[in-house]
Design a protein around this nucleic acid. Structure first.
Length: 509
RNA sequence: GCCGCGUUGGUCAAGGGGUUAAGACGCCUCCCUUUCACGGAGGAAUCACGGGUUCGAAUCCCGUACGUGGUACCA
C-alpha cells in the first residue's frame, strides 16, 4: 500500500529562523518520516515588501544543519513545482475569481487611507480594533456596496483593488484539531480577510489553501497563532469545493520566554544571553549579526532533541533521543497544548549529554573548527587525546577551547595569587628538585610522572596537596582542567619544565 | 473590548477518578576526586482559585482568575 502522507513547512523568508520555526519543521519532519510520508518545503514569499536578500538560502542552510531535509522544495523541485509562491502568482487569481462568482468574495477598492479613516472613526473603548466585516463592509467602497456599473468602471479605469472573503453571518465553523480536539468559531466575528492583494499576490489565507490543495497536503501543522484565522481557511476549502481533501490540522503550542510570559523573541535571547536562531543571521539592511545555536557550540542532534522535548514527550523517562528514535516514537497526540518556557540551562545539559555520547573521532572536526577560530591548528592525533581528556567537562563545543587551550599554548594568564598565598621556600626547592628528578624519566607518561612527583614530595616531607595545586596552576593557568599528570604527560617534559620555570619567576617577582 | 487557546514544583514534564503526584534541569547538603567536571546519596511541590459530580478528583463538569494568541493589502 502506498503511503500518501504529505506535510509541509512554509516559512516566509524574512530573516533568522527562530527556535519555534525549527520546532514546527521538526514536528512536520518527524510526522512525515514516522508515517513514511513526504516532507515538503514551500517558500511563502508573497509579501514583496518584506523580501530579505539571502533569507531563503539561509533557511536551506538551517534545515541542512539540523538534518531536516525536505523531499520536495524550490531547490529540489518535485511533482508539484514551483514551490515558491511568488512563482505561482498566476495560479491564485482564478480561485479568487471563482469565489467572487460564487458570491463568497468581493472586490474592494478602499485605499489604505480610507481603511485607516474607517478604523479611526469607529475606534472606541468598547471596540479598539474595528474590523472590515459584515458590520462595516456596506459603508466601504466595494462590489457589494457599489453598483455593477460603478465596479466595472473602476476596474476598467485601472483602479487598484483587493479581493476580500465575504464572511457569512450567524454561522459556526468548526474543525477537529489533532492536538486540541474540536474547535468552533462564530463566522461573523472574523473579518473579511483580504485574499488577493492589490499587487495581484495572494495573502497567506488564499495561498495556503490553494497550495495545500494543489500540493496534496494531508496534514497541516502550524503555530497556534494561526488558530483564530482557521475558520477563514476552513471556509475557503469549503467554498472552493475541496472540503473532502482538506488536510487535518494541528496547531502547535508556542515557545515562551524564560522570564515572564509571552512568545520568545530574538530580543529575549540577546537580553538574557542565549541564541534563539538555529544559525547565525546577519540582517543585510543593518549589518547586525545574531549568533545561532550552531555558533554557540550546539550539536545539531542536541538542538533537535531540545526542540522535540519542548512540546512533546513519550510516556517513558527517556529524555535523550537520537533523530531515529524520535522518528520511531513521535506521535502527534502526545504533543502538548500549552506553551513551554525555554530553559537555556537545560538546553546546555542536553548538549552536554550528546557530546558525551559522541565518539572522539566524530567530535574531532567540530572541535577543530573552534580551535582554528582561536588561531590554533592542532594535529588530529593530539587533539583526539585532548578531547578524550576534557570532553566530560564540556557542555558546548565552545567549551573545548577554554578547557583545552593549555595543551597547545602555554597559558598567558597565570593565577599566581593563589600560589603566592601559600608559597614557601620549601615549595620552591621542591619544584627545583622535582625538575631535576623528572629530567631522568625516560618514559614520559602520567604514571611515571605521578610516581616521581610522589617520591619527591615524600623526600621534602610535603603533602601532595600542597604542591599539586601550584603545579596545576603553573601548567594550566588556573584551578581547572583534567588530571594534572595527564596534562604534563601530554604537553611533554620540556614544556612542563619550561612552564614551571616561568611560573617560578612570576612568583618570585 | 471581542473571540480563540491554555494553566501539575523556579523550569521542562509523567500521570487522564483511589499513586508515598514519576523523572529531568537548576538550587542546597554530603560522598568520590588533594582543582574543576563527571559519577553517586540525600533535601525541598497538597497539581491557579471557587463551586459541583462522586464513597473518592491533579484527573470529569461549570464558573472565576491569570496568561497567551488573533483582531493588517505580515506571515
Amino acid at each position: 500500500m502506498t503511503n500518501d502522507v504529505r506535510v509541509r513547512f512554509a516559512p516566509s523568508p524574512t530573516g533568522g529562523l527562530h527556535l519555534g520555526g525549527v520546532r514546527t519543521v521538526l514536528f512536520n519532519y518527524l510526522f512525515a518520516k514516522h508515517t513514511g510520508g513526504k516532507f515538503i518545503l514551500r517558500i511563502e514569499d508573497t509579501d514583496r515588501t518584506r523580501y530579505v536578500e539571502g533569507a531563503e538560502q539561509y533557511i536551506y542552510d538551517c534545515l541542512a544543519w539540523c538534518g531536516l531535509n525536505p523531499d520536495e522544495s524550490p531547490l529540489l523541485g518535485g511533482e508539484y513545482a514551483p514551490y515558491r509562491q511568488s512563482e505561482r502568482k498566476d495560479i491564485y487569481r482564478q480561485y479568487a475569481e471563482q469565489l467572487i462568482a460564487q458570491g463568497n468574495a468581493y472586490y474592494a477598492f478602499d485605499t489604505s487611507e480610507e481603511l485607516e479613516q474607517m478604523r479611526a472613526n469607529l475606534k472606541s473603548e468598547q471596540n479598539p480594533s474595528p474590523q472590515y466585516d459584515h458590520k462595516t463592509r456596506m459603508s466601504m467602497r466595494n462590489s457589494l456596496s457599489l453598483t455593477n456599473e460603478e465596479v466595472e468602471k473602476l476596474i476598467e479605469s485601472g483602479a487598484p483593488y483587493v479581493v476580500r472573503i465575504k464572511m457569512p453571518e450567524n454561522e459556526r465553523v468548526g474543525f477537529t484539531d489533532m492536538i486540541r480536539g474540536h474547535i468552533e468559531n462564530e463566522t461573523e466575528l472574523v473579518d473579511d480577510k483580504v485574499l488577493l492583494k492589490a499587487d495581484g499576490m495572494p495573502t497567506y489565507h488564499l495561498a495556503v489553501v490553494v497550495d495545500d490543495y494543489l500540493m496534496k497536503i494531508t496534514h497541516a501543522f502550524r503555530g497556534e497563532e494561526w488558530l483564530p484565522s482557521a475558520p477563514v481557511h476552513i471556509l475557503l476549502w469549503k467554498y472552493l469545493g475541496w472540503e473532502a481533501e482538506m488536510p487535518q490540522w494541528a496547531h502547535l503550542p508556542l515557545i515562551l520566554k524564560p522570564d515572564g510570559n509571552g512568545k520568545l523573541s530574538k530580543r529575549d535571547g540577546q537580553r538574557l544571553g542565549f541564541p534563539v536562531f538555529a544559525m547565525s543571521w546577519t540582517d543585510p539592511s543593518t549589518g547586525e549579526t545574531i549568533n545561532g545555536f550552531k555558533e554557540e557550540g550546539f550539536l545539531p542532534e542536541a538542538f533537535v532533541n531540545i526542540l522535540a522535548m519542548l512540546g512533546w514527550k513519550d510516556d517513558s523517562e527517556q529524555e535523550i533521543f537520537s533523530m531515529q528514535e524520535l522518528i520511531d516514537k513521535f506521535s502527534i497526540d502526545r504533543v502538548h497544548k500549552g506553551g513551554a518556557k525555554f530553559d537555556y540551562d537545560k538546553a546546555k545539559w542536553f548538549n552536554q549529554q550528546h557530546i558525551q555520547q559522541k565518539s572522539n573521532e566524530d567530535l574531532l572536526p567540530l572541535v577543530k573548527s573552534f580551535f582554528e577560530k582561536e588561531g590554533v591548528t592542532p594535529d588530529d592525533e593530539s587533539l583526539l587525546q585532548v578531547i578524550s581528556l576534557i570532553k566530560e567537562r564540556c557542555q558546548l563545543l565552545t567549551d573545548f577551547w577554554p578547557q583545552g587551550h593549555f595543551f597547545f599554548k602555554s597559558p598567558s594568564d597565570i593565577d599566581t595569587d593563589t600560589i603566592k598565598a601559600k608559597w614557601t621556600d620549601e615549595k620552591k626547592t621542591f619544584f627545583n628538585d622535582w625538575m631535576e628528578t623528572f629530567a631522568n624519566i625516560t618514559d614520559w607518561n602520567s604514571e611515571q610522572i605521578e610516581a616521581s612527583f610522589n617520591e619527591t614530595t615524600a623526600k621534602h616531607s610535603l603533602k601532595k596537596g600542597e604542591v599539586m595545586l601550584p603545579l596545576r596552576i603553573m601548567l594550566v593557568g588556573g584551578k581547572y582542567g583534567p588530571g594534572v599528570y595527564d596534562i604534563a604527560a601530554h604537553i611533554g617534559k620540556e614544556e612542563t619544565k619550561n612552564r614551571i620555570i616561568s611560573a617560578l619567576q612570576l612568583i618570585e617577582e
